[in-house]
Design a binder for these strands. Structure first.
Length: 111
DNA sequence: TGGTTGACGTGGT
DNA sequence: GACCACGCCAACC
């Protein structure tokens, strides 16, 4: 484990991996947990490279609970399928009961 | 070295 | 409540 030597991307992956099963989080939440609350875009950008990583990017959605990054998945509805497979209800590319399924790392991990 | 990008967020209209 | 415009900040070319 290399704390400072690792890129911001790596840190994002670490947090996303800690997202519990059947739960979802937002880019901003991860960014805040990393201390870069205003770098929410960077989180999404990092996910762009999560292709070769074991990162459950499908559990990460934007603040509206919308599956904005589903277009980046291999399949068009792959992201939705993965979430539904975990018990998350998706409709219109939007997470139902997003407030309940929302998992904030800064709130649970509370470093 | 500098400019562009982007899976977002917030605020204003 | 929905839509539009601006800002942020690290990675990439």
């Amino acid at each position: 484990m290399k704390p400072e030597t690792e890129s911001f991307f790596e840190r994002v992956y670490e947090v996303v991996r800690q997202v519990p099963y059947g739960r979802v989080t937002s880019y901003g939440a991860i960014a805040r947990y990393l201390g870069a609350a205003r770098s929410a875009r960077m989180v999404g950008y990092a996910m762009n490279a999560s292709h070769a990583k074991d990162v459950p990017a499908h559990r990460v959605v934007n603040r509206k609970g919308l599956l904005t990054g589903k277009h980046h998945f291999h399949g068009t509805n792959l992201m939705q399928q993965l979430l539904e497979s975990e018990g998350v209800v998706i409709e219109e590319n939007q997470v139902i009961d997003f407030d309940k399924l929302y998992w904030d790392p800064a709130m649970h991990l509370k470093l």
